[in-house]
Amino acid sequence: MMKDPFGGIILNIAFRVLVPFSIVYAVYVLIFGEISPGGGFQAGVALSVGVVFSRLILGEDAPFNISGASALILAGIGTFIFVFTGWISVLTGGHFLDYGKLPLRMEHVNEIHAMGILSIEVGVTLCVMATVITILDAIVKRSDDNGSA
């Protein structure tokens, strides 16, 4: 946790106005990643920007804060979602990440493909977001331990 955050009145107000929009935009990028530029990686980094900014600007009393330990657990959950989606199709008689074999009741096979890709992107998003937060946690902890110049 940062001992002396970067905050000031301009940064606080800009944080309150900008971060909700950035989070909504990240969810849009995640959902529309198949038919437009974007995808899990970009959405994950854009989601983590909210947490990173809140930790940098507000310091100890950040409103939505994810600590380093729970970020590691979240990264594991994201990886698990990815691998689990891959193994479901193996269990139903296909190859790894064979979206056509997913046990979903849909009219068209393209819809099953879209659902499979979406669930994998959700896993990638969680993993990337938690990893960026963990990197920030490591940098901040090291600079707090040694004192700032």
Binding site: L56, L136, I139, V140, S143, N146, A149
Partner: peptide, 9 residues
């Protein structure tokens, strides 16, 4: 952001 946080040290 990471570079600027690391620059505090």
């Amino acid at each position: 952001i990471f570079y600027i946080v690391a620059l505090r040290k």
